[in-house]
Amino acid sequence: MTKKKLLLNIFGPILSVVVLIGIWQAIVVWGNVAPYIAPKPWDAINAVTSNWSTLAPLTWWTIKETVYGYLVGALLGAFLGVVLNKIPLMQRVLYPLLILTQAIPIIALAPPLVMILGFGVMPKVVIVAWIVFFPVTVSVLDGLNHVDKDLMTLAKVFGANSLRRFVVLEMPAAVTQLFSGLKIGATYAVTGAIIGELAASSGSSLALYQRSASGSLDAAGVYGTTLIMTAIGIVWFLLVVGAEYIATPWQRRSTARQWRRGAKPVVTNN
């Protein structure tokens, strides 16, 4: 990446956020919007920082719900993708069922989950996983279905058994696709956690804090919690992008990183 490109990559997003905040500020100030309807950006940020001792543990909970749910969903999704690819019958039996799961409104899912799993972190994890697994399954399935047939043939000629063909060729070939599913899932995950918190919370939660703020006409609190939720979503998305960057170096590099095992630089007589 050239220096110019790097600068653009860093300052481009920052600039767009600044512009967005500017528009927000302009609407609130020039539109004479009352502070109990919508706060100025700074007031929303202030509502977070000045209440951080209350918000920090709630934020931490939401992060946990998001991350646990995401991991469960991603693993389950990848597993299902493989199952669907490997067992053709499953594509007919399971696929409609999987689509059905996504057609159920998440809101309808919440009450039975609470009854079975209680008010803790579990029902949120299930809801997040429920949302996240699907794009992952679809992308893994897509990736596996599009592995070069000739490459698989070649591997057979080389005498590779099906497990090796899967591990050495199909899995890495599906990784690029997998990440597109993981990224979509990452953007949805925090939404799932918040829906879960609204549906059932013990003690407090970010969603409930927001609801209370809304009930108190504390728009700064409402927007502030929204900022936190958004930040969780963005940071998680960026982490997934970072993982993709590390996991798929061939997508943007011409040589392997030197420290990676199995791709050592040429060392004669080692």
Binding site: A110, P111, V114, A200, S201, S202, G203, S205
Partner: peptide, 8 residues
């Protein structure tokens, strides 16, 4: 006490 919140 434990206050819980939910849909119903």
């Amino acid at each position: 006490i434990t206050i819980v919140t939910g849909a119903n």
